[in-house]
Simulated assay, not measured.
Amino acid sequence: MKTQIEIQKENVKTLLDLIKENPDLPIVPMVESEVVAGDDYTTWLGSFGKAEIDHIWDNGEQIYFYSHDFEELVQNVLDEIPAAVDDKIADKTATDAVDKYKWEKSIVVQIGLP
Rank of each mutant, 00 (worst) to 15 (best):
Q110P: 03
Q62W: 06
W44F: 15
L16Q: 06
G46H: 05
G60S: 11
S47H: 05
K20C: 06
A83D: 15
L78W: 08
N11I: 02
K100N: 11
K105Y: 07
Q75T: 13
Q8D: 01
Q4D: 03
V74G: 09
V28A: 06
V35N: 01
K92G: 06
Q110D: 11
D24K: 11
N76V: 04
E71M: 12
H55N: 15
L113C: 05
Y101D: 06
K2S: 09
V74E: 08
D17N: 11
N76F: 02
Y64N: 06
S47Q: 13
T42S: 15
A37S: 14
K20G: 05
I56N: 13
K102N: 14
D86M: 14
K88S: 11
N11P: 03
K9L: 05
I107H: 01
I81P: 14
H55D: 14
N22H: 02
G112S: 01
L18S: 04
N76K: 07
K20T: 05
V35R: 00
T95D: 13
V98E: 07
F65M: 13
Y101F: 15
H68K: 15
A97M: 03
A83I: 11
M1I: 02
Y66P: 12
I81N: 12
V28I: 13
K2Y: 08
P23L: 04
L73D: 06
D58G: 09
D87H: 13
K100W: 05
V12S: 00
I53M: 12
D79C: 09
Y101C: 09
D54S: 13
Y64T: 05
E10Y: 00
G46F: 02
I56T: 14
Y41A: 14
P23S: 02
G112D: 00
V28M: 11
Q62M: 13
K102F: 07
V108K: 01
L25Y: 07
P114T: 04
M1F: 02
H68D: 12
F65P: 04
K9Y: 00
V77M: 07
K88M: 15
I53H: 08
N22P: 01
I81T: 11
K50P: 07
A84N: 13
V74T: 05
Y41V: 09
F65S: 10
G60D: 10
Y64S: 11
F48L: 14
L73E: 08
V85N: 07
